[in-house]
Amino acid sequence: MTGKIGFAHWLAFLLPTGLLAGAYGSQYIGGLYPCEMCWWQRYPHFEAAALATLAFFVANPVYRRALVALAALGILSSGLIGGFHAGVEYQWWEGLTACTSTISGSGDALLKSIMNAPLIRCDTAPWTLFGISLAGYNFLLSTGGAIAILLSIWRSKTP
């Protein structure tokens, strides 16, 4: 794996795994629990990371390119969901979902967990940096990364 396809392959692997690590870090270390649309953004990254990982074990360069391209499309779909979510957070348009919360337990403990669980709203950004929310950063990084991966594959002369 040399040249531009090697770069694309590594980016298709590192970008979704890094963004997922950041999402889980912000959740479990930073206490920023995900709303429903935050979860929607994670699913394509799982798919992209799995496809890019699988591509490491594929010897045929044509199939490897196809897997990396599919991973890039997964990354792009997460970015586009992030863009939609950021628009909901900035009140540019209305979201498609209800708010979510985290609950656990059973019986009385479940009821207590439900009553004490924080309500996670999709239309409110719990954290921003330079006025950009986590969903906005996912849009920027994922969309830009997916375009870079696809351009790198397209410009590569050899499979």
Rank of each mutant, 00 (worst) to 15 (best):
F57R: 09
K157T: 07
T97K: 02
L32K: 13
G105I: 13
S106M: 08
G107Q: 10
L54I: 13
L80P: 02
S26Y: 09
S78D: 00
L141R: 07
W40Q: 14
G83L: 13
K157V: 06
L141N: 05
Y43W: 13
E94C: 05
L140E: 04
A86Q: 14
W93L: 09
N60P: 00
L14A: 06
L151K: 02
K112N: 10
A12V: 04
A66H: 06
L70K: 13
A109I: 04
I81F: 08
S113C: 10
A148L: 15
A125D: 07
L96D: 08
F46N: 10
K157H: 13
G136W: 00
I120V: 15
G107S: 07
N60D: 15
C122M: 07
Y43I: 14
S113K: 13
L111Y: 11
P34R: 03
S133P: 07
G82S: 02
I132M: 12
V88M: 04
L150V: 00
D108Y: 10
L110W: 14
W10H: 11
W40L: 13
L110I: 06
F84A: 09
G18A: 01
I147M: 11
H85N: 12
Y43R: 11
T53K: 07
G136R: 01
G18E: 01
A86D: 12
L19P: 04
